[in-house]
Simulated assay, not measured.
Amino acid sequence: MKIAIFASGNGSNFEVLAQKIIGGEIPGELALLFCDHPDAYVIERSRKFQIPVVTFTVKACGDKQAYEEKIAQVLEQYKIDFIVLAGYMRVIGQPVLSKYEGRIVNLHPAYLPAYPGLHAIERAFADGVAQTGVTVHYIDAGLDSGPIIAQKHVPLYSDDCLEDLEARIHACEHKLYPAVLKELLSKKGE
């Protein structure tokens, strides 16, 4: 099974997943990193794994429809079977969604349905909730509204600063996402 990881930023989740896929802990072949920001640090992280990287922006394509159609062409070119979103900060459009329905998963830094969309950690922190969490879910046409695969709560302590909460969220992500993908891709491989 050929896997593409989509990412937009720093790439810490990408790096964890790449190590586990290439190391054989998660079944499949990491065939592509797609990034919508040509200067994102995730591209630097990807170099040590020697996997193909494709990067382009909506602006370079002219509009969102053309951008999504170009992504669909790239996925077909690389014969991608499954898409893993790891910090990809865009909504997946119909040209990709229609071809990969049920084969696109996302990691969200909140206990959905609370805090969908951008800045979930910051919003949970600002609200002073007792706990937030991490969610792995399938992608649908909505905003973080697809069927939930797995969730884990992450506490917010009264003496936390935002960086403390972010660190706990990322630590949880780095454990939960690989475990869920291992199970999910093992079943799909059968």
Score class of each variant (00 low, 15 high):
35 C>K: 04
35 C>Y: 07
35 C>F: 11
37 H>Y: 13
38 P>G: 13
39 D>N: 12
41 Y>V: 01
42 V>A: 08
44 E>G: 07
46 S>R: 01
46 S>Y: 06
47 R>W: 01
48 K>H: 00
50 Q>K: 15
51 I>H: 05
54 V>I: 13
55 T>W: 01
57 T>N: 14
58 V>T: 13
58 V>Q: 12
61 C>Q: 11
62 G>A: 06
63 D>K: 08
64 K>N: 07
65 Q>H: 03
68 E>I: 01
69 E>V: 01
70 K>Y: 00
71 I>K: 06
73 Q>S: 15
74 V>L: 00
74 V>E: 12
74 V>I: 14
75 L>A: 07
75 L>V: 04
76 E>L: 09
77 Q>S: 05
78 Y>P: 05
79 K>N: 14
81 D>W: 02
83 I>M: 11
84 V>I: 15
85 L>T: 00
87 G>D: 04
87 G>A: 09
89 M>Y: 12
89 M>S: 13
89 M>W: 09
90 R>A: 12
91 V>C: 03
92 I>A: 01
92 I>T: 05
95 P>E: 05
95 P>T: 03
96 V>I: 15
98 S>L: 01
100 Y>V: 05
100 Y>G: 13
100 Y>H: 10
100 Y>T: 06
102 G>C: 04
102 G>R: 08
103 R>K: 15
104 I>W: 13
110 A>R: 09
111 Y>F: 15
112 L>N: 11
114 A>P: 00
119 H>P: 00
119 H>R: 11
127 D>V: 00
128 G>N: 09
129 V>P: 07
129 V>M: 02
130 A>W: 03
131 Q>K: 15
132 T>C: 08
134 V>Y: 03
136 V>K: 03
137 H>V: 13
137 H>Y: 09
140 D>Y: 09
143 L>F: 09
143 L>G: 02
144 D>R: 12
145 S>V: 06
145 S>L: 10
146 G>A: 11
147 P>D: 13
149 I>Y: 12
149 I>K: 11
151 Q>H: 09
151 Q>T: 11
153 H>N: 13
153 H>K: 14
154 V>A: 05
154 V>T: 04
154 V>I: 08
154 V>G: 03
155 P>F: 05
156 L>P: 07
157 Y>C: 05
158 S>V: 06
158 S>G: 03
160 D>Y: 02
160 D>R: 06
160 D>E: 13
161 C>E: 15
161 C>A: 13
162 L>T: 01
163 E>S: 12
163 E>A: 11
164 D>L: 04
168 R>W: 00
169 I>C: 02
170 H>L: 14
170 H>E: 05
170 H>Y: 08
171 A>W: 01
173 E>R: 00
175 K>F: 00
176 L>G: 00
178 P>Q: 06
178 P>S: 04
180 V>F: 10
181 L>I: 09
